[in-house]
Write a protein that binds this DNA or RNA. Structure first.
Lengths: 304, 304
DNA sequence: TTGATAATTCCAAATTATGGATTAATATTG
DNA sequence: CAATATTAATCCATAATTTGGAATTATCAA
């Protein structure tokens, strides 16, 4: 395989697929070609891109980094070759509706998007902040940003970043209760709970090497992550919080990270849009901007 | 010409040359290929890149713009593919994921690996302790340590040490039951059993010159080797234990080794890693360290 | 244990790229 | 003004590369 760019294109699709076979169908080529392209790429890069057996294919950490870079390069090349088409098309203008999580959206996306609007005077945005996954609303949206997982293949989804979770408490709290040495210790100490607005039930705490914990008797309960953060900062109890909420407090010493080695697998941050029909230019522009922006954000300022 | 990137590379050199012939010399290809590449590029872009006659070639305004963009893209692609050259030159660094057995790993590997980390500040380790052989997890690991056998030839496995097994009991127990003189005597006496987490079934006892024994009515059952050791130390019953668990107790007289001449063939301790694809330097370094370390460990302090 | 499916390897066939020979065009020179 | 020299373009046989069917191996599920 002499064609570096083609290898990257194949790699990108494989990374978005759950296995080589699926990728080969999407690409309209044989699975053999996929195998060869990935192998060639791995040889060139000197590092594996996928952990794979005949029944399982998962991307490596290195692979994840490479996808983002590859996508950038591919987009640029395609942009080069579509210059004449672009000028033919209508300019990006019109209304774009986006749904996103409350806290995360207002903290990270709102500032970026207002900046974006200055560069794209023809575009209007309609932002809906909600932690609820409401399909009726979602179906009327052009773009969505969500944390967690999708089981929905009507969408084109891009995993653009990830959220880590930390168990945290104030230094005073730690002094009072003693530092928990293992996961089980936590459940004897005061803690706060967060309601999942979708189900009305408590969010479980998850760990790398311990079963999920469903808070049964929290000192404080809310359905708003920021409120929970505020409560934790007062020293009411321990909590498992997303890095974008608590990282800065860990850095400045207001909070202490407990049992960091028990951090669960990080959650994905996804940008998605409905797959129906051709994509309007204005939607594509905003979508690409969000993907770009979110991929670059450093949510976790901690030095691990 | 299918290779967009190659076309851009040729275009770039032509733009820097005064004519196609010169470019062909610089590129080490024939002038025909240059002609074709530029023609193809112009067809794709829908616009001429050079004004040319047989005696003169000058770049168009459109061509000038394209050179700049092409150079950007080419640099990015090259940067992508030069990652490995840098990392090959540099010291090993990055994340290495290792899976290992609970007890054995924490007792022998954890101390060694934490020491290793001090000498290799660039390396991060992700250690997963499990007695389960879970392929889904295992496939995402860079290195594994296991006791026993492999049926899997996708791995590069090194047998680095071995585990011996002893039938042991407390001196009090021996005094109470009388010292077993042959294997069959054991089965009439109290004993403990260990569950194989992979199968949910009892581990058989094995002997040099007697058939395997499947504990049918143990006084005490667990799936954790350390718990079984603790039970045996209380004098509940006899057990067949790995040397790294019981050797020191035999030495200090807390346990007595029964029928040592019936010890089964020792089990291998293996360090392995997936065979596919190239091996990252950081993985190689840790792998070699583990092989080295494990080969040197004296698990059995007994003088046989 | 069997059946089904995915990844990989091998290899012959199909496709694509290559450059020598030729042709066409045009500036320079005698 | 014609002869000469030089270069781009075209044609085409050959070389090189890519492709996917068939066979192999591995793994999971029933």
């Amino acid at each position: 395989m002499k064609n570096q760019l083609e290898m990257l294109r194949i790699f990108k699709v494989v990374a978005e697929s759950s296995n080589f076979k699926e990728a080969s169908v999407r690409l309209g080529i044989s699975p053999q070609s996929v195998t060869r392209a990935i192998k060639e790429l791995e040889d060139l890069l000197g590092e594996p891109l996928f952990y794979r057996s005949t029944r399982n294919t998962t991307i490596t950490e290195f692979g994840k980094k490479m996808v983002l870079k590859s996508e950038g390069v591919i987009e640029q090349v395609d942009a080069l070759f579509e210059i004449q088409k672009r000028s033919n098309l209508q300019a990006a203008e019109g209304l774009v509706k986006i749904t996103m999580p409350n806290t995360f959206g207002q903290q990270y996306l709102l500032p970026a998007l207002t900046g974006f609007l200055k560069d794209h005077p023809g575009i209007q945005l309609d932002l809906r902040f909600s932690n609820l996954i409401d399909n009726v609303v979602a179906d009327q949206m052009d773009i969505g940003v969500r944390v967690g997982f999708f089981s929905n293949n009507r969408n084109v989804a891009r995993r653009v970043n990830e959220l880590k979770f930390y168990i945290v408490g104030t230094p005073e709290l730690v002094a009072r209760t003693g530092r928990p040495q293992q996961v089980n210790d936590l459940f004897q100490m005061p803690y706060t709970g967060l309601i999942d607005q979708n189900t009305g039930r408590m969010w479980p705490w998850t760990f790398a090497n311990a079963p999920d914990f469903f808070p049964t008797s929290p000192k404080f309960t809310t359905d708003d992550p920021e409120a929970e953060l505020a409560a934790v900062l007062t020293g009411i109890g321990y909590s498992q919080l997303a890095d974008f909420l608590c990282a800065k407090y860990i850095d400045n010493g207001k909070l202490v990270s407990i049992l960091p080695e028990q951090s669960p697998a990080p959650w994905g941050i996804y940008v998605y849009r409905p797959q129906r029909g051709p994509v309007a230019e204005r939607v594509r522009v905003v979508f690409d901007f969000l993907v770009q922006t979110l991929a670059e954000i450093k949510l976790d300022k901690l030095s691990v």
